[in-house]
């Protein structure tokens, strides 16, 4: 199944997947919340590299801008504004953790089995567009106008809602 030749794409895939998986595992195992956010930023940047490998340059840019930039900073602000004793307290809850680990591993086993068993149809080769951002912009303003406008309404509602929720109540 994994009999891929040692091309540049495969080497880049390997490097990015090492970054992604080690960042994710470190995120789960760190105890300080700020360290978790930093390792999560590494995961986001690794995923952006994967997007470049998959000929989605515009999405890679958006990923770095929104996830590695905005969401990480937002989470750090969330940590700062909530609790400062930011070390996860360890308490006896090992059965719960073991149950969660078994569930996650079972889900992974199921997904892995499904991926191995599925016979994917041989696709015609993907011709990457000359200008990825140009093609996405054209699609966004022709075929996807209605979802695009709906997303803009959603973002406005969400940000106004966030401001209202987080605002200090007047005495």
């Amino acid at each position: 199944m994994f009999n891929v030749s040692l091309t540049g794409e495969f080497v880049a895939f390997f490097v990015f997947s090492v970054i992604i998986i080690s960042g994710a595992v470190l995120m789960v195992s760190f105890t300080k919340v700020v360290h978790m956010v930093v390792s999560l930023a590494a995961v986001f940047i690794g995923v952006a590299g994967m997007f470049v490998l998959l000929n989605a340059e515009f999405l890679a840019f958006v990923q770095v801008l929104i996830y590695a930039g905005a969401v990480s900073i937002l989470m750090i602000f969330g940590i700062m504004m909530t609790k400062h004793q930011d070390v996860e307290a360890e308490k006896g809850r090992s059965w719960h953790e073991a149950l969660a680990a078994v569930g996650a591993l079972a889900l992974f086993g199921l997904l892995f089995y499904a991926i191995r068993e599925t016979e994917f149809p041989v696709a015609q080769p993907f011709q990457p567009a000359q200008d990825n951002a140009l093609e996405i912009g054209k699609l966004l303003f022709t075929g996807y106008v209605v979802p695009f406008e709906l997303v803009s309404v959603l973002l406005t509602v969400a940000f106004i809602g966030a401001i209202v929720l987080a605002k200090k109540e007047a005495e």
């Binding site: 992604i20 998986i21 994710a24 595992v25 995120m27 789960v28 995961v43 969660a100 680990a101 569930g103 996650a104 591993l105 889900l107 992974f108 997904l111 892995f112 991926i115």
Partner: peptide, 9 residues
């Protein structure tokens, strides 16, 4: 799938 399961955990 690996990433999703780590996130779920």
């Amino acid at each position: 799938a690996i990433l999703f399961c780590i996130g779920l955990y």
